[in-house]
Design a binder for these strands. Structure first.
Lengths: 202, 202
DNA sequence: ACCTCACGCTACAGACCTGTCTGTTGTAAT
DNA sequence: ATTACAACAGACAGGTCTGTAGCGTGAGGT
């Protein structure tokens, strides 16, 4: 009973996962408006009815894609955070390092949150809400780090660094051919040094 | 003969301009994939045949939109540049000031070059080429300024500041609700100060 | 007075889109 | 064996998209 139940759930999950995995790859590479549900169905080898069983609409599927990207991002962040507990300066460097590496990966096509948000102007679109929440969470976590580093004006620092990260995420390999990955850390160090010198003055 | 010819050309230009103006506003506000040619035709009060007389395809119209945005941007830049000839530090501040003000404008919805480029993953899409060229030109001009300021590693500075500007352009009012307009100058000063201190060390 | 031509209007072709519906198959539980 | 259900298969509805074709009109140029 247990194994069969697991099998059932496993099958169901694997169908859902197959759809979400296929859709995620296609959405990320080509954009959501460029990919029709028929292609997702064909590529993932499922029936259309299955897609609409697990995702009420295409927008729901897009939202699920961004939500999973969001979770993956923070899972990675949390891992790095745990590895440098109590040493915020080192943690910030490590966070920027893996973000930079991610930008340098082959097939990198920009931050999915930013890209998809650019596709939907309407504020009320669920995908856009996910993206906005994601960036707010980034600012929040940068603020936590800044406070741990005892920087003056931590929120300002978080906003600034957040913008720099966004610029790097978006420009990487896409618009500026030379990836900005290696400069993220330099930039962050410059910013925090400037913040510290500000404190010395005040 | 001359006046009538001008009139003819004037009329023709006004029809073309009406199409391009209407399309530009709609494309910028909603994105190009969200706007159909029928809506552009309706809103600009022209015939569909006229649209396809002046623009071979919809992609051509999108390209024309981005090209005009590009020209407007550099026209503004050149004006500011001329107003501060021979004083690159002042010029950089002034350039960042109007860019920041542009971000803070009501109805600002991000950099059109970036937004449209995000809609088209294909490198060969004409609109994407315009966007890439636009960002390369930004880097080039920042490099010219950096050289005039006698900064060490001017190309690195240009790349860094370019990324920062991109981040600010994209994040402004869109993803980070508090506009980064007022921080652009601070960031630029921090970066150039850091570059100068680098030179002192070396 | 005639001609040219830009322009508007409308219908249409053909493709694609999302989402629904019907019916079948395989498999597990009872 | 029967019941239940997830999944597959595929047709289809109803709409939107880009781009084309046919026809009328009206204002300049000659």
């Amino acid at each position: 009973m247990k194994p069969t139940l697991n099998k059932q759930l496993g099958d169901a999950a694997s169908v859902r996962d197959r759809i979400l995995n296929t859709a995620s790859a296609l959405f990320y590479q080509e954009g959501t408006r460029a990919i029709g549900v028929d292609l997702i169905v064909e590529r993932s080898g499922v029936a259309k009815t299955s897609l609409y069983r697990y995702f009420r609409t295409k927008d729901d599927l897009i939202e699920a894609f961004l939500l999973r990207e969001d979770e993956d991002f923070w899972r990675q962040w949390d891992m790095v955070s745990a590895a440098h507990a109590g040493r915020p300066e080192r943690e910030l460097e490590a966070q920027l390092e893996w973000i930079g590496n991610r930008i340098a990966r082959v097939g990198y096509r920009g931050c999915p949150q930013i890209n998809i948000a650019a596709e939907y102007a309407n504020e009320s679109h669920p995908a856009r809400k996910v993206a906005v929440a994601h960036k707010a969470e980034l600012r929040r976590r940068l603020g936590v780090l800044a406070r741990a580093m005892d920087l003056p004006e931590p929120d300002l620092f978080a906003l600034q660094l957040g913008i720099v990260i966004d610029g790097a995420l978006m420009s990487g390999r896409a618009l500026h051919e030379e990836g900005p990955a290696q400069f993220l850390n330099t930039l962050a160090r410059t910013l925090s040094a400037a913040a510290r010198s500000l404190r010395k003055v005040s």
